[in-house]
Design a protein around this nucleic acid. Structure first.
Length: 964
RNA sequence: GCCCGGGUGGCGAAAUUGGCAGACGCGGGGGGCUUAAACCCCCCUUCUCCCCAGGGAGAGUGCGGGUUCAAGUCCCGCCCCGGGCACCA
């Protein structure tokens, strides 16, 4: 905003050697060149192409720091993006100076829709656009002074990279999940078990009874990557299917916001559900925020319950329930309209009605079904099922409040204890038997007298309470009697035992998580390393023939459809490339060269980001996706730190938006790789830190259209205007759509990268979102100017640091600063570290001279935050030559503990908890001494007014409270 | 509805285990430097009130209670804001 512009440009009067934005630019670009030329931030590996075992030892303890994989956008970065990057850079630089070998780099997650859509519009190949965007982003990152090992920067679109993405896919394809051992194993092991007949196929037949076709099918259906005809999310507007995780709550696509329809289609799936338990349980070993953990737990949605079989004329109906203990309260059953038994249950009088109802339900989108404010609907089938616990006949209904996608698609309805069933029973006049005695206060809350007559209940009672009317005798079996039991846990345990003893059901665990839909009908993604033989049976392409490169074409677009055309079918761009699709290959399976058809799907964008940290470790290693020694060194479990440490990178910083997408998929892949023995770590990211967002003011005109924020004038008191017309302010994520982006390039020009870095780190804690205020940036600029002026003569450029020792007060302040800065840096609290450094500098400013004794440690402490000006000052202090030409590996100062303790301290004296006075005492003054000093204080004497205190609380070294 | 965060000056924010609320920065006010201005330097800046102009009194961390010698911090009940999930049986 125009009135926020500070005048910081230099004028003819500006001293020639002042720290101006021009000087900052020179210093910054100069040091960036130096770092790159000398490979200052190249990190050694223990082995392999980047191996340097001796340097590994010299550098110290390993530390792997990583930002979330960015997509190289065509519009470049705005100042919101680098918040996390600067944070990781400061931390990495700090750790290098405290004896760590730090792996820190950044690559590009460059497959994806924007480049493809741009290609469709302009005809430019997505590879061209992508490379240009990456080049621009590399320039912007370099200009920020990030200390990346640029040798390790990778792009998912590079065939050298996606070769290994395809290899990992092949590994997943070549694996099955052994439920007994709870781990993935190679398909060869499965075949061996089938052959030895220690394992039977799912239909119970022995291997020897199967023909070749059947054997293939038996194997394929157990693979961790499998082709399935299953309900998927078809998005005609995008021309592709998308994963559950990519569909928003209102049934639209994450990207593009197009309608999404449930359709049965043949697609690649990944069996992430096999890992549901481990994905939940291992969260306990991770140093992540509870928010993210609970999102993952929610998404996986594990619930303990039981499966119970109800006999009907159409065969047993299995339901899933979390409350088997309420079986006595079941008064009807409900099936989802899509339930396979619905047709068989219908009788001639109800069939037509049910068909009509099911059709209507099928026409509804998922999100409409999931609107719980909708009034319940349903139809009676005319059929009955038998409650196994008491033999009662329950009417079977069909209703769309029961979803086919969860549990078994059928429920037993217990209206007295479930809000939805209660509502349904009320609407259709079904009985509501009470089976629990709700507590009195429940009745009080509902303003009715305690009663088991549910006709007067306004709602279902959900919770723990003693059971009533909960016993019964199904024919010929021993009755279960819950009456008198007063808690859920016992009720559930007793019922489960009964169900299992009578073959009527069993305790089970149900998950919300579905398998991961892994194929997309697009161009700009990794091709599948899969071909199909004439029988349509999939084969993995041998590793030696990888990568399967994306074929050249000028048709990048899948066929897209009218966004609402639910019954269109996906057509991948690769489908059209007949020359590429039909291949002759020798798969090395003894069949020689054969003709195959390639798989024409590509992988979802998440594939490349599932394992990129592993390639950062060994970007140029050709023998494997990562050298095992290097993986073990950088990712191996740190049981020396924590016995249950799962391994993985030491600090992973990124936004919260990847909570259930990237972070779940990457954990899944990593666990598969662990099971197969390819990695030593059981989790990819040991510690996750969610940085906040930078928000910015956005302005709307009277039509509600956003206007360029830079053109807005005025302030909150006078009101805001744009081109003379009033506009209203709101706050949002910085970006193109709100027209409020501020680019880092503007900040470099106006202040320099060091000021921008310092401002972003000083404006608040790293995990908090905060509004951008260009106006405030000047504060950090002034600090750097003062720092510079304390060390460099603005007229002559001479170093003005004095060689005389610092006085006692200054020295103590220095050491206190060192002590605090170390603590704060370790805890990623850069904002408070900066505040302490500013205080130290302000002290020197008042002092009028900068002793070398202070200057050197101060520059070293600032080096992680403002690396360019620190390098420059370090050089001007004459120290660079003795430290290898850079400050980057200089030891971070250590505080002298003796100087942290003052001889005398000022202790507040409270009277009745309010500070009334202060006394100076020796730091180690005893309780008695402090009490005596306090009681001798004038204010205390006045408050006592001749009397004696009721009580005196003394906290040595802290305070004294006199109670009168 | 359920589950996570969060609420402190005009603004961004500090405040290890309960122990001096508001560090540091922005903005604002005053002064110095200057022919003048910018830059820079110094002082003041939570609010209200009182006076002898340096101090003094009271209130104060979303609201209402509570525990405690002492609460931004702990407990109970609310309100508001942000995020996630949601007919999940």
């Amino acid at each position: 905003m125009s009135d926020d512009e500070s005048t910081i440009e230099s004028t003819p009067d500006t001293p020639p050697h002042r720290y101006t934005s021009e000087l900052a630019q020179d210093i910054e670009v100069g040091w960036q060149d130096h770092w790159e030329e000398h490979g200052v931030f190249e990190t050694p590996n223990p082995a392999g192409p980047l191996g340097d075992p001796e340097l590994v030892v010299t550098r110290g303890e390993k530390l792997f720091v990583q930002d979330m994989f960015p997509y190289p956008s065509g519009v470049g970065l705005h100042v919101g993006h680098p918040l996390g990057y600067i944070g990781t850079d400061v931390f990495s630089r700090y750790k290098r100076m405290t004896g760590h070998n730090v792996l820190y780099t950044m690559g590009f997650d460059a497959f994806g829709l924007p480049a493809e859509q741009y290609a469709v519009q302009t005809g430019t190949h997505p590879a061209v656009t992508t490379d240009a965007n990456i080049a621009n982003m590399r320039r912007q990152l370099r200009r920020l002074g990030l200390s990346h090992d640029i040798r390790r920067s990778i792009s998912t679109t590079d065939p050298h990279y996606y070769r290994w993405t395809q290899w990992i896919f092949s590994q997943v394809f070549d694996s099955w999940y052994d439920d007994a051992l709870q781990k993935a194993r190679p398909i060869a092991d499965l075949v061996a078990e089938f052959e030895s007949e220690s394992r039977l196929t799912d239909d119970g037949r022995a291997w020897s009874e199967l023909n070749a076709e059947e054997r293939n099918a038996a194997i394929d259906e157990l693979r961790l990557a499998y082709v399935s005809e299953a309900p998927v999310n078809w998005c005609p507007g995008l021309g592709t299917v998308v994963a559950n995780e990519e569909v928003t709550a209102d049934g639209r696509s994450d990207r593009g916001n197009f309608p999404v329809f449930k359709r049965n289609m043949r697609q690649w799936m990944m069996r992430i559900t096999a890992y549901a338990d481990r994905l939940i349980d291992d969260l306990d070993t991770l140093d992540w925020t509870d928010a993210i953990k609970s999102m993952q737990r929610n998404w996986i949605g594990r619930s303990q319950g039981a499966k119970v079989d109800f006999e009907s004329d159409a065969g047993p109906i299995t339901v899933f329930t979390t409350r088997p203990d309420t079986l006595f309260g079941a008064s009807f059953m409900v099936l989802s309209p899509e339930h396979p038994l619905v047709d068989r249950l219908a009788d001639p009088t109800t069939a037509a009605e049910i068909a009509t109802y099911s059709e209507q339900a099928a026409g509804k989108k998922d999100f409409e079904l999931q609107d719980d404010t909708r009034e319940k609907t349903g139809v009676f089938t005319g059929a009955y099922a038998t409650n196994p616990i008491n033999g009662k006949q329950l009417p079977i209904w069909v209703a769309d409040y029961v979803l086919m996608g969860y549990g078994t698609g059928a429920i037993m309805a217990v209206p007295c204890g479930d809000a939805r069933d209660f509502e349904f029973a009320r609407k259709f006049g079904l009985p509501i038997p009470a089976i629990q005695q709700p507590p009195d206060n429940w009745f009080e809350d509902h303003r009715i007298e305690p009663t088991l007559d549910t006709t007067v209940w306004p709602a279902a009672y959900v919770g723990d309470a003693p059971y009533v009317q909960s016993s019964g005798t199904p024919d010929g079996t021993q009755p279960l009697d819950l009456n008198g039991v007063d808690n859920k846990a016992d009720g559930i345990a007793l019922t489960n035992a009964w169900l299992e003893a009578h073959n009527a059901g069993e305790a089970t665990i149900n998950y919300k998580l579905r398998d991961w839909l892994f194929s997309r009908q697009r161009y700009w993604g990794e091709p599948f390393p899969i071909v199909y033989d004439d029988d349509g049976h999939p084969h993995a392409i041998p590793d030696a023939l990888l990568p399967v490169e994306l074929p050249e074409t000028d048709q990048f677009s899948p066929r897209t459809f009218d966004a609402d055309d639910e019954f269109s079918n996906p057509e991948s761009p690769l489908d059209q490339l007949e020359d590429w699709v039909n291949v002759e290959l020798d798969l090395g399976d003894g069949r020689g060269v054969q003709t195959y058809r390639r798989d024409t799907n590509v992988m979802p964008q998440w594939a490349g980001s599932c394992w990129y940290q592993l390639r950062y470790i060994d970007p140029t290693y050709e023998e494997a996706f990562v050298h095992p020694d290097n993986e073990h060194y950088w990712m191996g479990p740190r049981t020396d730190v924590r016995p249950d440490h799962p391994g993985g990178i030491d600090l992973y910083v990124g936004g919260v938006e990847h909570a259930v997408l990237h972070l779940l998929y990457a954990r899944f892949w990593h666990k598969v790789l662990f099971d197969l023995g390819h990695v030593s770590s059981i989790e990819p990211y040991a510690r996750l830190y969610n940085q906040g967002y930078i928000q910015a003011a956005a302005f709307k005109d009277e039509r509600g259209i956003y206007v360029e924020a830079t053109g807005v004038e005025g302030n909150e008191h006078s009101g805001f205007t744009f081109a003379g017309k009033p506009v209203t302010r709101e706050w949002g994520k910085m970006g193109k759509s709100l027209k409020n982006a501020v680019s880092p390039d503007e900040m470099y020009d106006q202040y320099g990268a060091d000021t921008l870095r310092l401002y972003e780190m000083a404006m608040g804690p790293l995990d908090a979102s905060r509004p951008w205020a260009t106006r405030d940036v000047v504060g950090q600029y002034r600090f750097l100017q003062r720092l510079w002026r304390n060390m460099v003569d603005e007229e002559t450029g001479e170093c003005v640091v004095v060689e005389t020792p610092a006085n006692d007060e200054t020295r103590r302040l220095l050491h206190k600063t060192i002590d605090t800065v170390r603590t704060e840096m370790d805890a990623l609290r850069f904002n408070t570290a900066i505040a302490k450094l500013i205080e130290l500098n302000n002290h020197i400013t008042k002092l009028g001279e900068m002793p070398r004794e202070v200057a050197e440690p101060m520059v070293v402490m600032l080096a992680p935050l403002v690396p360019h000006v620190a390098e420059e000052l370090w050089s001007r202090l004459g120290r660079s030559d003795s430290t290898g030409g850079t400050i980057a590996y200089v030891d971070f100062p250590v505080a002298d503990p003796k100087l942290l303790i003052n001889d005398t301290i000022e202790v507040p004296i409270q009277v009745n908890g309010k500070v009334r006075s202060r006394v100076s005492v020796t730091a180690d003054a005893s309780k008695d001494e402090l009490e005596a000093a306090a009681l001798a204080d004038d204010k205390v004497l006045a408050a006592l007014d001749g009397g004696s205190p009721v009580k005196v609380i003394v906290v040595p070294g802290r305070m004294v409270n006199v109670v009168v």
